[in-house]
């Protein structure tokens, strides 16, 4: 697969604050790419630079073959952005909004009409196309925002915290739409989030904090590298289990009578289980989560 976004050494400071301190990464075409990090990590600043909103202090980026800073209009034509805040006009209807924003892309009248109809269908905004944007519910607004970002059929769709503040049902709907865009149209999706469970659905994740990339990989790779599986054992005879674990030189923690034993690999649980034999009253194997990855990398829980 080819790289649709390539970033190297991207930097941005606001006075004393070094918001982004030399970031390198690439995004493969057609993938769902997630930028995970707490608020203030530098995610939005990075996105603002990639979407030509903010001029980087140093570094280079290429998006869809266009050089950032030199071919900005090329970049602007090939990206769509769903901003964190709603940026459509509340007093205009969804349709009017789509026509106004769509006219920025040098389309002929008939092309624009077709483009608006297509975007409206994809984002499923048909039911409220003629209602003022300001009177829509949060979920409807988000769908309208997505429709706006799709008008010019961009190659890359940026979504900055697309599901923040939405109810679980709507969040699921938004995700279904995002997934469809990636699968059916081969669109590259670049999203930022601070929800672990959302990042875990991406093809590739970059974890960022304090303006630096901490780690990158598929969710599986990250969990393999930075999270451990856990064997939870509930014994009939605690002393016997303790003696056994000590004899095998295994680390453990006791949480309300349950023994937590970290595992390098899931399969390592088997000999331990066999060794304990009839002493086991209850057993559970928990695989590592993105939360653990994040905790291990940043040393803190997700700040949200």
């Amino acid at each position: 697969m080819s790289k649709i976004i390539e970033v190297s050494g991207l930097q941005k400071s606001f006075g004393e604050l070094r918001a982004v301190q030399g970031v390198d990464f690439y995004v493969e075409e057609g993938s769902l790419f997630a930028f995970l990090g707490p608020n203030g990590a530098g995610k939005s600043t990075t996105i603002d630079m990639l979407t030509t909103q903010l001029k980087p202090d140093a570094g280079e980026a290429t998006i869809s073959g266009y050089k950032l800073g030199r071919e900005d209009d090329g970049i602007r034509s090939s990206i769509g952005i769903v901003f964190q805040d709603s940026l459509l006009d509340p007093l205009l209807t969804v349709k009017e909004n789509l026509f106004v924003r769509g006219s920025f892309y040098n389309l002929s009248r008939s092309e624009l009409k077709a483009a608006v109809a297509r975007a409206a269908a994809t984002a499923d905004v048909g039911d409220f196309l003629n209602r003022p944007y300001g009177k829509l519910s949060g979920g409807q607004r988000r769908r309208a925002d997505i429709a706006r970002a799709l008008i010019h059929t961009p190659k890359v769709l940026f979504l900055d915290e697309p599901t923040t503040g939405l109810d679980p049902q709507t969040r699921k709907n938004v995700w279904t739409t995002i997934r469809q865009l990636q699968k059916e149209q081969g669109m590259t999706i670049f999203l930022t989030t601070h929800y672990m469970e959302e990042a875990a659905q991406a093809d590739y994740i970059i974890i960022m904090d304090h303006g630096k990339v901490l780690a990158g990989g598929t969710p599986y790779e990250l969990k393999e590298r930075y999270a451990t599986d856990l064997l939870k054992l509930m014994p009939h005879n605690a002393e016997e289990l303790q003696a056994y674990l000590q004899s095998k030189a295994l680390d453990y923690m006791i949480v309300s009578g349950v023994y937590h034993i970290p595992l390098k690999q899931t399969a390592h649980a088997l000999p331990i289980v066999e060794g304990c034999g009839a002493n086991i009253a209850g057993i559970e194997i928990v695989s590592g989560t993105m939360d653990d990855v994040f905790l291990n990398l940043t040393g803190t829980e997700v700040r949200s």
Partner: peptide
């Protein structure tokens, strides 16, 4: 910040 949506377009 509506202006962002304008300046992010060509």
């Amino acid at each position: 910040k509506t202006i962002k949506d304008f300046t992010a377009a060509p």
